[in-house]
Amino acid sequence: MSTLLVQEKQVVIPGDVLAEGMEFLPGKGARRENDNVIATRVGIVSPNGHVIHIIPLSGGYSPRANDVVIGEIKDMSYSSWFVDIGYPYEASLSLKEASSEFIERGASLSDYFSIGDIVLIKVINVTKEGNIDLTMRTPELRKLRGGKIVTVASPKIPRVVGKLGSMITLIKEKTGCHIFAGQNGRVWIQGPSPAAEKLATEAIMLIDKKAHVSGLTAIVSSFLEKSKKE
């Protein structure tokens, strides 16, 4: 008889036994050892039928195709730019993915992107060696001018965005800022005033701290209301 030893949303530590018996299968963040399913990350239990997943509570960014992230141009060669997206391996933007417009031969590449530029950029592909191919060719991708960047742990970004964007829309409305949350944990904020940007930053840091708590939208909403009154 197989038994599940943990509950959904319980916090588990690597080495914790999640289930005994062959009926349960290890999903992400878990492994099988003999008859048991054992956690391999600090995270929250998320059972899906017989498969037990662990949603990690911390960790670096792990890129996947179609992720939209915020990067900084770090270097360039004659046909590509190298972008830092917070991952230990190289992410490159090749010339043919840089723009939907025609790029003339002999054009100055720094007219398009130069070192230090902050960009909203998309991952097309992650190679087996871990190198990343990027593109700027979708309409919403662009250079980000002005504003500031706040970094949270990448697993917390879904909480910053909220179900169907509910959380990020709440912050945008209450602070009047443009906000974009990249999958790599970087959040770009641009507001009508430094005070507005500061308020949005504080709201995001609050989400980072309390990402594991339920009813977070209400907590953030009352925080924003209280701060606006002051």
Binding site: P14, G29, R31, T40, V42, S58, G60
Partner: peptide, 11 residues
Amino acid sequence: LADAGFEMKDL
């Protein structure tokens, strides 16, 4: 290491 989010067999 666990706090950093690494995949670990055990502590």
